[in-house]
Design a protein around this nucleic acid. Structure first.
Lengths: 285, 285
DNA sequence: AGCATATTTGTAATTAAATTACAATAAGTC
DNA sequence: GACTTATTGTAATTTAATTACAAATATGCT
């Protein structure tokens, strides 16, 4: 974990003097990495051993080691420690924070995805007779996006964001069909029902959802994205971006599995759009 | 510039012993940042001052400072190397690459967005009588997502992914209405028409599209995301994620502008979903 | 080739920095 | 209010890095 975040998170465990050190470091992290322990101690108005103890408390070997960790945190372009948008944030601040928190969420997701599950999902998808993407609310747009991607593969693909249509589609599913249910929380009752119905009708159900959720229990295969919940905003944000990236990954895996000849097909689809577009000045007539 | 690159580039200026140091560092950079000057000197089979001189030659203040620079290089240099998915990539490789390229695209977008334009867009949106989101193809899912977000604000918002509906909606727009047109390339003819029609009917048209594009020229305000084109895959990937994040930013700016009382409204919308969901075990009854 | 100069490299001394051990102070508890 | 525990600082020690200088090696010139 990012050292800066770690400082913020463990501020509760700090003593009064250690907190002073934390404040100084958070206020000028860039200066800190070029300071000696003596200089930093002076800035925070504490003694040198206090700074040293502060470093140890953050699981670093000592002050030099701490500076190393800090330098790495800063290098990743993570100036904002507190990524949560706050009341008084101006456009610059909230723009940066949202970009950063999204990137952080993706990074977290990246380290948590189960590659084997992805591989199996790609397996299943490549062999599907028909692929259905179901999502409700915020996840509906992810389902649409998935449809847009898989549609290009010239595979029978449908997408519904309407419970009734989803239900009908699920009831009509058969062996060899793949149903992908998308839900961040995995607690949407209707979608759980759909998953159950699809399974009863011998379809393979892939859940893009949280592991330990009612929806997950109804699925044949679960693709979980451990993205930290966006607690402060009352909207799904980062989690949904992670879902989209997961769809990208599945689509990519799909094309790779199908081989190079198949990819020419993709190009054809893209070229077909040309008529509906204005030509680029520099592109061939 | 990255220190590792710098070492490679200036290898010509090094003396024999310095080159030995360079080799050892390049071979195990991760070890280097946790070694003392003595340990490194021993590994390279040179004296300690030689290592120190080596550091100075790379415009660092000394060995500790050099380690700091090296740590930073390792922090951001390593992951985003080869971002393009290749034929022979396994699940692990393409998963990592897609996550990384998406993150890289977001990072690039972050540094290129025009904060002023965002601020003006938020201005316009907060004052809108009605907001319409229009997108076609891959951008349609972004438009849906935007609708889902702004709908929660209890603002009149519509979203169409159908040219005919978009056209009718655009013709019916009036002063005070805001139309947001989403298109990565900005070259989709139909959408350019829609933007023009909306403007003729006194709506404010915000374009989430490329700066120098036909669509941009039809808009009142352009929000451009300079995301490197996804050249190898014949599908829009990273660009669309960046668009979503931009929508997140606009929505966030919107809520901040509307003040805290308004945010209670958001909570109400979220709570309203509770009935349709399975309760979490640990949540209050 | 041989001498002289310049450059590179290493040894030892010095200095600076960080850590440890311990004492003093402050906070909390009965 | 005295005792215990935790926190903080002072001073000593250790460790690491740097400097100064000397030896060795290489380079150039007659």
């Amino acid at each position: 974990m990012n050292v800066l975040e770690k400082i913020v998170n463990s501020v509760a465990n700090f003593s009064k003097s250690e907190r002073k050190v934390a404040e100084v470091i958070l206020a000028n992290p860039q200066t800190t990495i070029h300071s000696s322990i003596a200089a930093l101690a002076k800035m925070a108005d504490v003694s040198e051993p206090t700074v040293n103890r502060f470093c140890r408390r953050l699981d670093t070997k000592g002050f030099p080691d701490f500076k190393l960790h800090l330098a790495q945190s800063l290098a990743n372009g993570t100036p904002y420690v507190n990524r949560h948008v706050e009341e008084e944030d101006g456009p610059e601040a909230y723009t940066a924070k949202i970009f950063e928190s999204t990137m952080a969420a993706l990074d977290s997701a990246r380290h948590n995805v189960d590659i084997n599950a992805i591989n199996r999902a790609v397996d299943v998808l490549t062999q599907a007779k028909k692929i259905s993407f179901f999502g409700l609310g915020a996840s509906a747009s992810v389902a649409h996006d998935a449809q847009n991607k898989f549609f290009r593969f010239n595979v029978p693909v449908v997408c519904f964001d309407d419970i009734v249509m989803q239900r009908m589609s699920a009831i009509n599913s058969a062996e060899g069909d793949v149903v992908v249910c998308i839900s961040h929380t995995g607690r949407t009752k209707n979608l759980c029902d759909i998953a159950a119905i699809a399974r009863e009708n011998d379809a393979t159900v892939i859940g893009v959802t949280a592991y330990d959720s009612p929806l997950a229990r109804e699925c044949t295969l679960v693709l979980s994205l451990d993205v930290p919940e966006d607690t402060d905003m009352y909207m799904p944000m980062a989690s949904r971006v992670a879902q989209l990236v997961l769809i990208d990954i599945l689509a990519t895996g799909f094309t790779l599995r199908r081989g190079s000849k198949f990819r020419e097909n993709l190009k054809k689809v893209k070229d077909s759009l040309r008529g509906s577009r204005f030509e680029k000045k520099d592109s061939p007539a």
